[in-house]
Design a protein around this nucleic acid. Structure first.
Length: 743
RNA sequence: GCGCGAUUAGCUCAGUUGGUAGAGCAGCGCUUUUACACAGCGAAGGUCGCAGGUUCGAAUCCUGCAUCGCGCACCA
């Protein structure tokens, strides 16, 4: 197959000009798409019975356009996919986008408020969703364009969306099964309320920020002998107990006693209880228990059967108290309560402390713990399958502990286990409109979601479609976006349609899951949960986690800082190959990296170097036909072949170990400083002064080495290598499906 | 508080199972020689965070410490 005469012209005209990525990239991507090789079903025959390699793209949020982090994701995955394909594997890479519920909705809300001064409540649910969908569609189109521009060799025929019809069926099926097994339940408890977004969020959607706060120490009343400390005096109107450590002798005499007083205008009754969660060394060693407005206190109250008293509403305003407290925001009420304490002579101490405050990741709202009726996934709830008892938490742990899932780098396994240890039930209902509506219908005189716990127990129906009969109302809430993305490895393969899923069964578990280390809990863990429970197997065999892409000074890229690099601009200026190389070289799995234009520019020059190397080889060998399996190599070339082979063996091993950062660097070094600087320079002498045999040998060596370089570099720099491949032969072969040069 | 990671040339980072340090970029000098000036050649640049220990020998293994970053927990 290598017997291809190069023809009379020394090198095609295109090589007379510097390499121009812009001219090449769209043309080459079109060639690949036309080849059908992105789709495993239309790969050449030799792939059809081969071992599969499967991977899903972490679906980008339709909240805007892709950033450098996405570019890294796509680059790493495309390297994996192209390498697997060149190894002859039947390669499937599934594209898709994520509706990203709360992220997208809050983005659209902000845009509408900024441009039109309107809020969500100024629209009907349908009108508002129309706006979100329009926005999501625009984002989607840009994202798809970006994915193509990066060179992603992804199967567009299988593109999915987390909110489309097949995925909706998957979500409802999963929900129903989990509900029937008792793993999804509805419960009234203290949740994380985001007053800004007007919704609950899960524990993982909280970010912490250290701020200074005032810690106040005071008595509730003159005749209550115990002092307590708090940074939130306004919540004390909702206190129903004082907790002390069981072995704290200072307070032993009060345990079991009850005190009633009027605190800042609100009558409160406090029972003194003993609980081991209280730290006797903190503050006064006594803790005012506010069951309705603190997760920890809620748990204490559950242990002791304490009443719950809500004094703050969904808007972060007080519902009880004196004038100046009632109907005021908590921050304002706090000062009023402190003033009242001073006035009453109850305040004993005020000190400044560092405090972590909880913020909603998406909206920045300060989390207000509130009691609410919500839907949860019970991670500790036992269920039986195949005669064995399981919990979701145990399944999640076992998947990694058993080695069925391997994490790269492996240190993340420890992080994962630690997260599981502290995992609590997952709150999955959200009071937002954009997302999967909860597939639950109620029938009663009141709508329970609005009426709270006081509502009479309604008739409940959980199913794939609305139930028959009159008077049914669907739950107003939507599901946490990660509920649908948790199903992603199999909802993209046809599940729950058995016939469809069985066609793609060989691809599941996926060979690889590649994503950012920052979503190991959000996504990786949730996929493991869903897959082990619903399919009975792990979702993937390997997890490769990459780090954050920071800008040149090591800060996170963000639009507000203005240090945001638009990947499309980078591609337009330097080409996708250069951008890909800059993201890979020197960046090991899991570690954060910095990008700067200098680095990208350096790899643009490298593309041009390869271009000129090709030109030189074509010009200096055009009188020699390519000879397959050439055997008469001169001694010097035999040595060079050995050196080349050693490199290929080494990088093949490193590719298998996912050390792409090393392979890219070594190839760069070999091409530039060994092949070009040394071998090509020396070849000039060979072609000028060597014997006919030496010249023939060298010509074959150069041609063969160029091909090997193109193959080895192809996963990293697909465009320029494919372009050279196409320009240097007359056949219609496509480099993308050539065989990797090493074993 | 618990855990993880980082600390190597001005910058960004390699350094596989321990054998007295490497690359890229930037900078400096020289060179316009017919693949490429989007280039070539050359020189310079580091007591591998600190302190101990193991070893014939440690950037590499062990212990402790420091600084930076991150995660989790706490957040009365």
């Amino acid at each position: 197959m290598n017997d291809i005469p190069l023809g009379p012209s020394p090198a095609p005209d295109i090589f007379l000009k510097p390499y121009n990525p812009t001219d090449t990239e769209s043309r080459i991507y079109a060639l690949w798409e036309k080849s059908g090789f992105f789709n495993p079903d239309t790969l050449p025959p030799r792939f059809q019975n081969a071992e599969p390699f499967s991977i899903v793209l972490p679906p980008p949020n339709v909240t805007g356009t892709l950033h450098a982090g996405h570019a890294l994701t796509i680059t790493v995955e495309d390297i994996m996919v192209r390498y697997a394909r060149m190894q002859g594997k039947k390669t499937l890479w599934i594209p898709g986008t994520d509706h990203a519920a709360i992220a997208t909705q809050s983005k659209v809300e902000k845009d509408i408020e900024k441009k039109e001064g309107k809020r969500r409540k100024d629209f009907t649910r349908e009108e508002f969703l129309g706006r979100v969908e329009t926005f999501a569609a625009e984002s989607h189109d840009v994202i798809v364009k970006q994915l193509r521009s990066f060179g992603a060799s992804i199967d567009w025929s299988r593109e999915a969306f987390t909110l489309d019809a097949p995925r909706t069926l998957a979500v409802r099926t999963a929900f129903k099964k989990m509900y029937d097994d008792g793993l999804i339940y509805r419960g009234y408890r203290v949740i994380n309320w985001d007053p800004k977004g007007q919704t609950t969020i899960s524990d993982d959607e909280i970010v912490y920020e250290t701020r200074q706060a005032q810690l106040y120490t005071f008595k509730y009343a003159k005749d209550i002998p115990i002092s307590i400390s708090t940074t939130r005096p306004e919540t004390k109107l909702g206190d129903t107990a004082i907790a002390v450590h069981p072995s704290d002798e200072r307070y032993a005499q009060y345990i079991g006693k009850e005190f009633t007083t009027t605190f800042a205008g609100e009558s409160i009754t406090l029972k003194v209880i003993a609980d081991i969660s209280v730290d006797p060394a903190f503050g006064t060693g006594a803790l005012g228990v506010t069951p309705a407005h603190s997760t920890i206190d809620w748990e204490i109250s559950q242990r002791h059967g304490l009443p719950l008293k809500q004094v703050i509403n969904e808007y972060g305003k007080m519902t009880v108290g004196l004038d100046g407290i009632k109907d005021k925001k908590t921050t304002e009420a706090r000062l009023a309560v402190v003033a009242w304490l001073k006035e009453q002579g109850l305040l004993e101490k005020e000190e400044t402390v560092e405090q972590n405050i909880s913020l909603a990741e998406r909206t920045g709202g300060i989390i207000e713990p509130l009691p609410k009726l919500q839907w949860f996934v019970g991670v500790n709830k036992e269920f039986t399958r195949d005669g064995k008892t399981h919990t979701l938490k145990a399944l999640m742990k076992e998947s990694v502990a058993s080695g069925d899932i391997k994490m790269i780098p492996d240190r993340f396994e420890k992080v994962y286990f630690h997260w599981i240890e502290t995992l609590r039930d997952w709150c999955i209902s959200r009071q937002i409109w954009y997302g999967h509506r909860i597939p639950v219908w109620y029938r009663s005189s009141v709508i329970p979601a609005q009426a709270g716990i006081q509502a009479p127990d309604p008739e409940i129906y959980v199913g794939l479609e609305a139930p028959a009969g009159e008077g049914w109302t669907q739950d107003e809430d939507t599901l946490d976006t990660w509920f649908s993305s948790g199903l992603w490895t199999f909802s993209t393969l046809g599940w729950p349609d058995e016939a469809e899923f069985s066609k793609h069964r060989a691809y599941h578990p996926m060979t690889m899951l590649e994503t950012g280390r920052d979503i190991i809990f959000f996504w990786v863990a949730r996929m493991i949960l869903m897959s082990t429970y619903l399919i009975g197997e792990v979702p993937f065999k390997n997890v490769y986690l990459h780090g954050l892409v920071l800008e040149a000074q090591g800060r996170k890229m963000s639009k507000s800082l203005g240090n945001f690099i638009d990947p499309l601009e980078v591609v337009a200026k330097y080409g996708a190959d250069a951008y890909r190389m800059s993201l890979i070289v020197g960046v090991g799995p899991g570690s954060d990296s910095k990008t700067g234009e200098d680095k990208i520019k350096a790899y643009k020059l490298f593309g041009n170097k390869l271009w000129n190397i090709t030109r030189f080889i074509l010009e200096s060998t055009h009188t020699h036909a390519r000879i397959a399996n050439f055997a008469d190599y001169a001694a010097a070339d035999v040595a060079l072949i050995a050196e080349r082979q050693a490199l290929i063996t080494e990088i093949t091993r490193e590719m298998n170990e996912y050390k792409f950062y090393l392979v890219a660097e070594k190839l760069y070094h070999y091409v530039w400083h060994t092949f070009a600087d040394t071998i090509l320079e020396q070849s000039k002498t060979v072609f000028r002064e060597g014997t006919v045999a030496e010249q023939a040998s060298r010509a074959q060596f150069l041609l063969e080495t160029l091909d090997i370089i193109l193959k080895a570099l192809h996963p990293f720099m697909p465009y320029v290598t494919e372009e050279i491949w196409q320009q240097t032969r007359a056949t219609d072969s496509v480099l993308m499906v050539e065989e990797w040069p090493g074993k």
